[in-house]
Computed example of a mutant assay.
Amino acid sequence: MSIRFAPTAKKAVAGLAIAGAVVSASGCGAILSNLQEATQRAEDQGSDSVPSEPTTPAEEPVEEDTSLESPPPAEEEDVAAFDIAVGDCLNDESIQGEVSEVPLTDCSAPHDSEVYASTISAESEWPGDQAITDEADQFCLDEFATFIGVPYEQSVYDFSYYTPTREAFEQFDREIYCVVYSPGEQTTGTLSGAAS
């Protein structure tokens, strides 16, 4: 049996890394351009000397700060989708559509999402794909502020959910799981009470 992962609309994320790369590249171009101009002036003045590349004063060796290094990746364990529970952390960024297993990892290591709430569908018969999605969306939205500490609209975090497929629902696997995540990056530890 499988479960369906249904991502919600993601909030916009700025591409700061690309902007930084453009600034760095344009700075290097300016240094190269200045060096070429100085070389041309020296040749125009009839001088045989060509300016050397700019030098920087010798610096004392800097001790590396290892506190910013990423911790080693935690081991993942594929578990049955219906065996996850509130408080579990997952590396499920690449999951789409129906799945029967999800990659469970330790919350103390970088991870993609955290299961923050679950409920049994209120429906007694299969309500259809849209209805089960609507039920999950409303439930996870309602539980979001309780877990994070601020309403969804004010949060930097986003949520998604796992819902049962029709086959699973008819076999009485009717649980809905809500997951919270930080768009575009992994988090470490729990987001409970993050208030952001």
Rank of each mutant, 00 (worst) to 15 (best):
A6L: 09
A6S: 13
A6M: 12
P7N: 09
P7T: 07
T8M: 15
T8V: 13
T8K: 13
A9T: 11
A12I: 07
A12V: 09
V13I: 14
G15N: 14
G15Q: 12
G15E: 11
G15R: 14
I18P: 01
G20S: 05
A21C: 01
A21R: 00
S24A: 13
A25Y: 10
C28K: 08
I31Y: 02
I31E: 03
L32R: 08
L32M: 12
S33F: 14
N34L: 10
N34W: 02
N34I: 00
N34F: 05
L35T: 04
L35P: 01
Q36Y: 08
E37D: 15
E37N: 12
A38R: 10
Q40D: 11
R41Y: 07
E43Q: 11
Q45H: 06
S49I: 10
S49F: 12
S49Y: 11
V50E: 06
P51D: 02
P51L: 04
S52V: 06
P54L: 03
T55A: 14
T55I: 10
T56Y: 09
T56N: 11
T56G: 04
P57T: 12
P57R: 10
E59L: 12
V62Q: 14
V62C: 06
E63Q: 14
E63S: 10
D65V: 03
S67F: 07
S67V: 05
E69I: 07
S70I: 11
S70E: 14
S70V: 09
P71W: 03
P71E: 13
P72K: 12
P72C: 06
A74Q: 08
A74R: 07
E75H: 07
E76N: 05
E77I: 13
D78T: 11
A81S: 11
F82R: 06
D83N: 13
D83K: 07
I84S: 00
A85N: 03
G87Y: 01
G87H: 00
C89T: 01
L90E: 00
L90K: 05
E93C: 02
E93T: 01
E93M: 05
S94C: 00
S94E: 08
Q96A: 15
G97Y: 10
G97H: 11
E98K: 09
E98H: 06
